[in-house]
Write a protein that binds this DNA or RNA. Structure first.
Lengths: 262, 262
DNA sequence: GTTAACTCCGAACGGTATACTGAGTTACGA
DNA sequence: TCGTAACTCAGTATACCGTTCGGAGTTAAC
């Protein structure tokens, strides 16, 4: 009762994470036969982004993407293994602005400030990344290019390598976290309306409406400290002004830089 | 052709946001007739949380929640208007730990550190809040109770009301943002295994696996700064150590406190 | 006792992602 | 040159999803 045939392939099943990685990092392994392809991965990602920006993240579906391209749903599967992987591609596509942090003028603090602002602007322009990217961040080429550039912002400071990385991710975490507290961000129309003004409006109309409804329902006498803050004009859960927390964080990093260069 | 009857009810249609708010803040307006109710809203929320923690956020569905409770799907709609509102209830249910920040010992910095740690622990224990709460944060009773308590942490410092609020939200944003960069957090089994140890493991098994796959695919010569960081032992996109960014942020807030009390 | 309000739920509707199958198209290898 | 293998594409099928509808049973108010 020998068993001459070992298990044919003890290869672990490719996890969705690994599939997304392989997809993001190229590795095109298709032959050359068959009819010419009518689409490209880039066109699909582009169409998907159009759909999600027009109809919102909840309405994003492969069917709509296919319709946008004038193609059957099943056709997409020859270019992209599934929805999750498409989302990873979309995220990487909008991950980075046109220029890179280390190329910007000024010292590290100026660059880091600009980095945060750029991140913030990107997030407000594409609010859906917060809803789409919930699953997990699979690092793609754009993200790594950005991260590499961001690390170089700290060239010349005495910070350790791990500290540089941690500082970048702290700023990134703050920006993204605040974007989430603030809610979905402004509409595309809004963004187009004041393109580039970069204003830090304390609260938009939606949050104002919600606060009104909240004020009608809640007895704020039960929350004295909150009541005081409200009376002073602060607007909770609208997201605090972006700049405040950023400057505090940068102050803290600056303290460390000074300590390290001493 | 007079028109003696004005439009009967110019009441605007209740938005989903307002429905969720009304739901979170009580306002039970049901009559007393009809058969006794077999369920409660609390039981439903509890069951939903069980489902999401067992099967993951993607598998959360009203049908599963109903099955978990041994009732038909449609029955849920007598207690909860829809899925969005149920999610709001779930989020508020796990929003706050057993004790409140202002009751903890120490000065404001000690309390704020504990607040961040508590927030972090809560996030790692219920990672799904990051995926569920994507839509929008509708503040419920627990959240406001927590926020009120958090504001009182700054009692005695010279900070302005808006500054207090902004500081709280900055810390909160940092913690949640880092939770997202890190990925979904640890499994329930993990959490149970080292209950309360609060260790800051740099990277878990999942991220290690992903990094291996990444290393195989990516030519890091194209990312010199990143390569240096990696060589120094840093692990990108695994989330930097939680403590680093937190202490930098707290340092920055401390500077402001000192300035304000001068 | 009648009735109106209420709970519960099976069934159905329109939507989703994905798998499967088959037909049509292309280019390599003999 | 031409058969055939490899490939693209789409229609159909499956298995879910949230939500609605209508009916049957139950209770309190009148």
């Amino acid at each position: 009762m020998t068993d001459p045939l070992p298990a044919p392939a003890p290869v672990p099943p490719p996890s969705p994470q690994e599939r997304a990685l392989a997809l993001l990092w190229g590795g095109d392994t298709r032959g050359s036969r068959g009819p010419a392809r009518g689409l490209t991965r880039e066109r699909i990602v582009e169409a998907a982004i159009e759909v999600v920006e027009r109809d919102g993240p909840a309405a994003m579906s492969l069917r709509r993407v296919a319709a946008q391209l004038g193609v059957g749903v099943a056709s997409l599967y020859t270019y992209v293994p599934g929805r999750a992987e498409l989302e990873a591609l979309m995220l990487d596509a909008v991950a980075v602005g046109p220029t890179l942090p280390h190329e910007w003028p000024g010292d590290w603090r100026a660059k880091l400030t600009a980095l945060a602002h750029d991140d913030w602007r990107q997030l407000r322009r594409h609010p859906w990344v917060l809803e789409l990217g919930a699953a997990e961040q699979v690092p793609g080429p754009n993200m790594l290019r950005w991260l590499d550039s961001a690390l170089r912002v700290f060239d010349g400071t005495g910070l350790g390598e791990a500290e540089k990385l941690a500082a970048i991710e702290a700023v990134d975490a703050y920006v993204r976290g605040l974007g989430r507290l603030r809610g979905a961000g402004e509409s595309a129309a809004e963004a187009a309306g004041r393109e580039g003004t970069d204003a830090d409006t304390g609260a938009d109309t939606d949050t104002r409406e919600r606060d009104d409804a909240l004020g009608r329902l809640v007895d704020f006498d039960r929350y004295p400290a909150l009541r005081r803050a409200l009376a002073a004009g602060a607007t909770p859960y609208a997201g605090a002004p972006f700049e405040f927390g950023l400057q505090r964080l940068l102050d803290g990093i600056e303290q460390l830089v000074i300590r390290r260069s001493a």
